[in-house]
Amino acid sequence: MRKGWQHPVLLAPRTLRPWLTATGSLTARLIAHYPDFSVRVLRQTLAPPHRDERRPLRVARGRVEAREVLLMSGATPLVYAHSVAAPAALRRGFRAVGKLGNRSLGSFLFATPTITRSPLAWRRLDRRHPLWRKAAQQLPGLSGPLWARRSLFRAGADALMVTEVFLPPFFRLQG
């Protein structure tokens, strides 16, 4: 999981560091800071996993169930969130994920006591990373690097990977 996701957090903007390293629910933290919080689902579909998702999910080939959302404050996108799991995991330990609709994934993950979470990992993303390119589709004119954090959630033998990419409007609101 950590390969490529070990950039020193001290390289991140100072105002972002507490957000990258906070171990609780990002959704709960955003709601506390942004009362006009909402989730906008961009897509939920079967897709090939990104190269850096294959090993942690133990998926060499094939497709994963991918859910992409924007975490918003009003009309302002703050975080692009990308979650992936093997399709079998959504039929077993993570079956509720397919029924979330516009509810946050965190509302399910942190309310389910049998789900465990790996330590957080983070990195700076540039235009070479597929998640940077997907986030850039939501923010025309994006040019600089983005910071993201990632963790793996487990329900028994099933795994779900969540990556949260902090967008420039978030930085402006925090600064």
Rank of each mutant, 00 (worst) to 15 (best):
M72E: 10
F108A: 10
S143R: 15
R150Y: 09
K3Q: 14
H50Q: 05
L71C: 05
W147T: 04
G24N: 03
T27I: 04
R61K: 06
V41W: 00
D158V: 10
R54S: 09
H129R: 15
I31R: 11
R61N: 06
Q138E: 14
L167K: 10
V79G: 02
F37V: 06
L109I: 07
T27R: 00
F37R: 01
L160E: 02
L26H: 01
V97A: 10
L167V: 03
G4N: 09
K99F: 13
A81F: 03
V9G: 11
R149M: 14
L139H: 10
V39A: 07
L42W: 05
V39F: 07
A75W: 04
A28Y: 08
A111F: 00
Q6I: 09
G156R: 06
P8Q: 03
V9I: 15
G93F: 06
T163N: 01
T15G: 03
A157F: 14
D36L: 12
S118N: 12
G106Y: 04
F153K: 00
D36S: 15
P13M: 09
G101D: 04
L167S: 08
L42F: 05
R103P: 03
G98I: 08
L26T: 10
S104R: 02
P56E: 04
Q137R: 14
P130N: 14
A148W: 04
R95I: 00
Q138Y: 04
V64L: 07
P77T: 13
L152G: 00
Q138S: 13
R67A: 07
G98H: 08
G144Y: 07
L46G: 10
Q138G: 09
L16T: 13
A96P: 04
W5V: 07
F153N: 03
G4M: 06
P48K: 01
A60P: 05
R123A: 12
A47W: 03
R128Y: 11
S73P: 01
W132E: 06
P140V: 09
G74E: 11
R127Y: 11
R149T: 09
E65G: 11
T45I: 00
L173H: 05
V165S: 06
P119H: 11
W122P: 04
W19V: 12
E65K: 05
V59Q: 07
V64G: 02
